[in-house]
Nucleic acid binder design. Sequence first.
DNA 1: AAGAACTCCTGTTGGC
DNA 2: TGCCAACAGGAGTTCT
Length: 294
Amino acid sequence: MPELPEVETVRRGLEPVFAGAVFEHVEQRRPDLRFPLPDNFAARLTGRRIETLARRAKYLLARLDGGEVLAMHLGMSGRFTVERAGEDARKPGAFVHAAGGSQAHDHLVFTMSSGAIVRYNDARRFGFMTLVAEEEMASHKLFRDLGPEPLGNEMTPDYIAGVCRDKKTSLKAVLLDQHIVAGLGNIYVCEALHRAALSPRRLAGTLAGRSGKANARAERLVPAIRAVLDEAIEAGGSSLRDYHAVDGSLGYFQHSFAVYGRSGLICPRPACGGGVKRIVQSGRSTFFCPRCQR
DNA sequence: AAGAACTCCTGTTGGC
DNA sequence: TGCCAACAGGAGTTCT
């Protein structure tokens, strides 16, 4: 489900009820998500205060007062929903979870000292949570090899060119690789490549010049990625099937898609006039305009 | 050893 | 209408 803009939107929604709050009660309804939950998970969370709620790549990181970090990944279908204790979930506007209360696939229910009930729901169970000692975060296998944040200063055209150099795979595959850039997923890679007018099939190595420095293609890819992510965050992410913000509200960046899910439609680039095509790359749908993306 | 294919799981959708 | 294959915002593991 969620790529960087959706995870960031969830983070912003959870922060007011998580940061500074204590887990008063933790209900764990199954032993595992994608992986087994930590031993004594509920007991280890109960009574802990969340100091900060951060995001790294597609992970939410809740730093706890005991020196541990609760790391949460939403996988494809994971979502958080916040309910105020005692609040009528049927109030106007609360349409997504109009029934309120427990839903199928609510695997974890956190009762917070802030008065919020936070439910983690994940039908496909590709999400996971784990507890990591704070001093082990940097060396932890989940985090040590993550690439730079695409909205940070490290992702420069020269960085992209450097990691693409000599790569025999497609540009699409490189951008989906979390070890190269952390946080992009299928939607925003498709959209960024369209903005940069680069073909997803292009050999990654062609973004590096003779010296290994960025060429004009790498120079326009970087701002395209940043712009797409910034706009998507601004829009509260993209809501297709599973995703919504923690209050049930939907993102609206899906209305701004140039290519994703739009096969057969006309390319929106002014004066292009090409048709959007769907192809499959490494088992996943790619949407692009073969006319203007080269 | 890089890169592609397969895998986990459930729900929804589109074509016959 | 119903049935069934294909597909879905991810990514670790296993193959070639």
